[in-house]
Design a protein around this nucleic acid. Sequence first.
DNA 1: ATGTCC
Length: 475
Amino acid sequence: MNIKLLKQESPCRWRMEKYGPMRVDALFFGNKDIILELDDTTVSQVRDVASLPGVVGQVCAMPDAHSGYGFPIGGVGAFDEKHGVISAGGVGFDISCGVRTLTTGLKKQDLITCDAKLADLLFKRIPSGAGVGGDIILEGDQLDEMLLGGASWAVGQGVGKPEDLGRIEGNGRNNFADPCKVPLKAKQRMRNQMGSLGSGNHYLEVQYVEEIYDKAKAAAFGIGIDDVVVSIHCGSRGLGHQIAKDYLPMMAKAAPGFGIKLPHKDIACAPINSELGRDYLGAMGAGINCALANRQAITHLVRECFTDTLPQADLRLLYDVSHNTCHREEFKINGKKKNLWVHRKGATRALGPGHPELPREFKKHGQPVIIGGSMGTASYILSGTKDSAEISFSSCCHGAGRVMSRAKARKNFKGNKIQKELGRHGIIIRTGSFKGIAEEAPLAYKDVDMIIESTQTAGIAEKVARLRPILCIKG
DNA sequence: ATGTCC
């Protein structure tokens, strides 16, 4: 982008003062290279969000920002609860897509002789791929019960341990969920998809802790050097997708009736206090619960796989955090505490130390923030900062961020070659789709290390540990 | 992201 449009506030913080239809400023995070490479669509999408009714504070673009449907991926927009809007495009198609990381009590040496066997078993037991379902079938009322209860429903079914729930954003359940507002078709698509990974950038990785940046925080999070961990990156499968697909046109159609002039046809939204806004909120909350239940169900399958191969393992949930959500949260605007609807699309919640929503063990150091890298590259565990409440509505980046379209990646890379290449670096890939592997090639993404450095320099999260993949199950 | 175009 044209850097002259921005005022550099600090090495990785750049302010665009509001102009034209913008109601608030925009804040871009990243080093100079990242800012220079932001494409025009992403920037204009940030300006569109800053032009919506009831937007407050500043709209943020994370270092991994790129263009999305209407609303940028890596974007944060907060709206006043009286006059603001809720946007289906501001949450994204994969509602509550997120990452959870489990500790195992194992060291990387424990896996040397059985990594391939573990990879085969995980690939066999955990359904992956587009449109692929699993053995869990939700019949009759079970689907609505899942949509209402989230991960806590799953634990009630014997899927996982009660202590998992305290380690999930919102204790594993979204209170705004209203299954009645979820389109029937969305429910039908989900009946056989519980406990499945999906495709695209979703994965299940067994990783080890390669580096620790903050010993005290790492100890509080329960991780040490060479520890084996498991990370699960997935979302609400066909259900979330169908909710977005159905609500987007409804919002676009209804906008003029609410007196909203949409800055772009794709950035559909409805007043949070309208019937349609509330309906979407109920459906989205159900979508969040679906994703939380899904990651819980997959966790259960992972535990079974470890019991079969490495029975000494003890899989405990470190944390589960989503990066496609809209939550009601309290922030100070012009010195006054206000309830806001915070959209985070491709942005991770990162609560700072002392935040009332954090479990006791994380109060001192801030929320564990899990950042999934692209396939074959590093992932990170960060911690939330106090300052991020003021700077970014307690949000930070969510991953590496694409630099190449899926189509372009398919042309440039061959899936089987990528698999072999990663194999030479000691990373086992199991997949049902070589096309998917090509689309997810490491070079189709920005350098995650650079994204993390910029995130830390911007002051919105701090490095705790770097994870390196041992094996990866790809959809 | 997605029964990868109802």
